[in-house]
């Protein structure tokens, strides 16, 4: 976290360091079904973030004592590659931060996956951050939603996630690493677009009630774009399959 004293000018003439408007997303690209072994997978590039998400399941729950006879359970691993940041070599394996993100990510999906369809089984979600540039947890959730859908797992909705930050009095959408380091507040949020239910919400910094409301509105507005990229990624997989089928 950078201190405010040495904070660079993050907003000049209404534009951000990378030239974006305050409510502008970084370029987002998603490809579904990229891994052969996984039941479902997605590769996402969001600004300089590069994320690989994969789903295995539903499978028999291991260890057995964790099985729930009334519904499926979800397990989630979010981890950052030791070479993912521009800083020093990272520690391998999940740390406390990654463990918390894994937990809240899992809980977000427990609200949308139709768990009662697979009692006693387990669904594994793996999120690997290959390159990080701010907002990796929301990138992970957005990718994992596509991976779950490509695994054919039934869900109430295809959820997306995005982060809103605050610099001085300005709210900014989808902050990158530099903005994240120096911002006054950071609020990642995951939303089910069908009814705009909030499935995951974190915040740190300082936010007024009014700013919270405006932030959520910004997230929902940006969600139209994110949702479209997610759906297009899935559509593309089936289009390719249909083309292959027709050419045979």
């Amino acid at each position: 976290m950078g201190s405010k004293a040495n904070r660079p000018e993050l907003i000049v003439d209404g534009k951000r360091l990378d030239g974006r408007a305050l409510d502008e997303l970084r370029p987002l690209k998603i490809e579904a079904s990229v891994l052969k072994n996984a039941d479902g997978s997605a590769y996402l590039e969001w600004g300089n973030n590069k994320v690989l998400a994969a789903v295995y399941g539903p499978v028999e729950t291991q260890p057995k004592h964790m099985a729930d006879p009334s519904k499926a359970i979800i397990k989630c691993r979010y981890a950052m590659a030791p070479f993912s940041s521009l800083e020093e070599h990272g520690r391998t394996g999940p740390n406390r931060r990654a463990t918390e993100i894994s937990k809240v990510t899992k809980e977000a999906f427990e609200n949308v996956v139709l768990l009662n369809e697979f009692p006693g089984s387990m669904i594994n979600i793996f999120i690997e951050i290959l390159q990080s540039d701010g907002g990796t947890r929301v990138a992970g959730i957005t990718a994992a939603a596509v991976a779950l859908a490509s695994a054919g797992i039934h869900m109430k909705d295809l959820i997306y996630a995005v982060a809103i930050g605050k610099v001085g009095d300005a709210l900014i959408l989808d902050q990158n690493m530099i903005e994240d380091n120096y911002s006054d507040a950071d609020m990642p949020i995951a939303i089910a677009p069908r009814n705009n239910d909030v499935l995951f919400l974190q915040m740190d910094g300082d936010f007024s009630k009014e700013e919270l409301k405006r932030s959520i509105d910004m997230a929902i507005e940006s969600g139209k774009v994110i949702s479209k990229v997610q759906k297009d990624a899935l559509r593309h997989v089936y289009q390719k399959a249909a083309e292959r089928y027709e050419s045979e």
């Binding site: 072994n37 996984a38 994969a54 295995y56 499978v59 030791p82 391998t92 594994n124 793996f126 690997e128």
Partner: peptide, 10 residues
């Protein structure tokens, strides 16, 4: 070092 990531194989 090497990691056999859980997403690489069931």
């Amino acid at each position: 070092s090497a990691e056999l990531l859980p997403l690489a194989s069931a």
